[in-house]
Simulated assay, not measured.
Amino acid sequence: MIEWGRLRVFGAVAEHGSVGAAAAALHITGPAVTQQLRKLERETGHRLVEPDGRGIRLTAAGHVLAGYAGSVAESVADAGRDLAALRDEAVGPLRIGAVASALRALLPAALRSLAAEHPRLVPTVRDGEVVDLLPALRSRDLDAVLLESWDDLPARLPPGVRTWDVDTEEALLAVSAGHGLAGSDRVQLSATDGEIWVSCPSGTESYEALVQVLRESGVEPEVRYRVADFTTHLRLVAAGMAVAIVPRGALDPIPEGVALRPCSPPVRRTLAVAVRENDDTPGLRAFRDAVVRAARERNRAPGPAGT
């Protein structure tokens, strides 16, 4: 096997035409250059240089090897530049997990921004619930998680995970247009006692937060429908089958026949990017910034229109 250090020395000899000039270029002694040349000739089984006056010249085998030495040197230099760029450039894979409503609201715009600004970053996305995504983050199956955390029930972060807040948004009570609460400017949650609810499945952040906030208002909710998709929640509301609390970011599209009303006390959720505590790569920072910009763009757009 040809050792790279000796090939580098031979490349300098081939470029400069003498042992002394190669030694000066490499900042080593002439005898050290000669020693490396002799070892390289033993490795290759060929004589690579021969005397030529006060200098040396390459043999036929030396000319062949010199071409490879130049190519290898260029590849090593390219690798060094690429590795140096990793300190500042977002490159390589980025495995993202996201709750479905945040994924739909923010990730398309964020991914478009990443593709335009960081073409060497390769994001992949999977959806799920926080309870499943955070363990995948800790086990290094994911690099970042876009999660939700509700005021009344903050996300439970395992050790070794930290978050960057992206956006805080109000959640609204969704009732059918013909519902008795549809005429209220702001609905006291205590007034929803006896209603049938649709929510996300048990164990999810959204479900647990709903139960918590209603119990604080003296309401024990009857959650008859447990569906992960907020769009389906609104369809059931429009059909007069249930009421729901839905974040603003999940209100697109809004079916006809749905009335949206602010709640009292207010219900809010925060979207955040979770990463492992010691991870701070250019790719993660680029992802966070892209999600923050996507949230700002969404917030500048017209708000949801409800009956």
Rank of each mutant, 00 (worst) to 15 (best):
L103D: 15
R104I: 12
A110G: 05
L111A: 12
L111D: 12
R112L: 13
S113F: 14
A115D: 08
A115P: 00
A116C: 00
A116T: 10
H118Y: 08
P119Q: 07
P119I: 12
R120Q: 12
V122T: 10
T124Y: 00
R126M: 11
G128V: 01
V130G: 10
V130R: 02
D132I: 00
L134K: 00
P135F: 12
P135H: 11
A136S: 06
L137D: 07
S139W: 02
D143L: 03
D143Y: 00
D143E: 04
V145Q: 07
V145E: 02
D151F: 08
D152K: 00
D152G: 13
P154R: 05
R156W: 06
R156H: 09
P159V: 04
V161C: 06
W164Y: 15
W164E: 14
L173Y: 03
A174Y: 15
V175I: 02
V175Y: 04
S176F: 10
A177I: 04
H179A: 10
S184D: 13
V187M: 11
T192L: 07
G194F: 08
I196A: 07
I196P: 12
C200Y: 09
C200L: 14
S202Q: 09
G203C: 08
S206G: 07
L210C: 09
L210V: 07
L214M: 08
R215A: 15
G218V: 01
G218T: 01
G218A: 01
G218Q: 01
V219E: 02
V219N: 04
P221K: 05
E222A: 09
V223T: 06
Y225V: 06
Y225E: 03
V227D: 15
